Computed example of a mutant assay.
Amino acid sequence: MNQTYPEQLNIIRRHQVAAPIQTVALADDLGLRVWHVPNWPDDLSGKIVKSAEQGGSSGYAIYVNKGHHVNRRRFTTAHEIAHYILHRQFIGDGIVDDGLYRSRLSNSMEVEANKMAADILMPRHLLNQHMSTGVNSVSELARIFQVSESAMSFRVGSPN
């Protein structure tokens, strides 16, 4: 499966009809296989690797620390999806992200992946939809979108 960037964005948009965004289903539609790994160290959040055996139709697999809170697992999955879309040429034998979403990639690439993960999980149109109905509490929005309060606080405080 070799989708173009616009095709990948369309797949993401098709998954953004209601909160919370279903990250594993999204990954699957992008041709990625998601694995939740038990017994990983707490400082390891996730990784994406090229794997003919364990990857989806794209040939890539995402591994997520099963011991982390569901909100963190969702962000990790979205973050690794972003690496696949934005930085596939750098994946090689894998991109491993630690607990602070740092990898061997440049800081700017990690920022790009974090921004896209936020765009995937907390799309502006859905945020605006909920806020227009009077849901303005960061904690309530975080609950609806299944993200951390800090991620939601940053998202609603940032104009883009």
Rank of each mutant, 00 (worst) to 15 (best):
T4Q: 07
L9K: 12
N10P: 00
N10D: 14
I12N: 04
V17R: 11
A18Q: 10
P20H: 01
P20T: 00
I21A: 03
L26W: 12
D28E: 14
D29N: 11
D29S: 07
G31A: 06
G31M: 02
G31V: 04
L32E: 07
V34F: 04
V37R: 09
P38S: 13
N39V: 04
N39R: 14
N39F: 13
N39S: 12
P41W: 04
D43I: 11
I48V: 13
I48P: 01
K50W: 00
S51A: 08
A52W: 03
E53S: 11
G56T: 03
S57A: 09
S57C: 00
I62T: 03
V64A: 09
N65S: 06
K66I: 07
H69D: 15
H69M: 03
N71W: 05
N71E: 15
R72L: 04
R73T: 02
F75R: 11
A78N: 07
E80K: 01
I81K: 03
Q89R: 10
I91D: 02
D93A: 02
D93E: 06
G99R: 10
L100D: 15
R104Q: 15
S106A: 15
E110V: 08
V111P: 06
E112A: 15
A113K: 09
K115D: 11
M122C: 13
L127N: 07
N128T: 14
N136L: 14
N136T: 15
S139V: 04
A142Q: 05
I144T: 03
I144P: 04
S150I: 06
S150L: 03
S150W: 03
S150G: 02
S153A: 13
F154A: 14
F154M: 09
R155Q: 01
P159E: 11
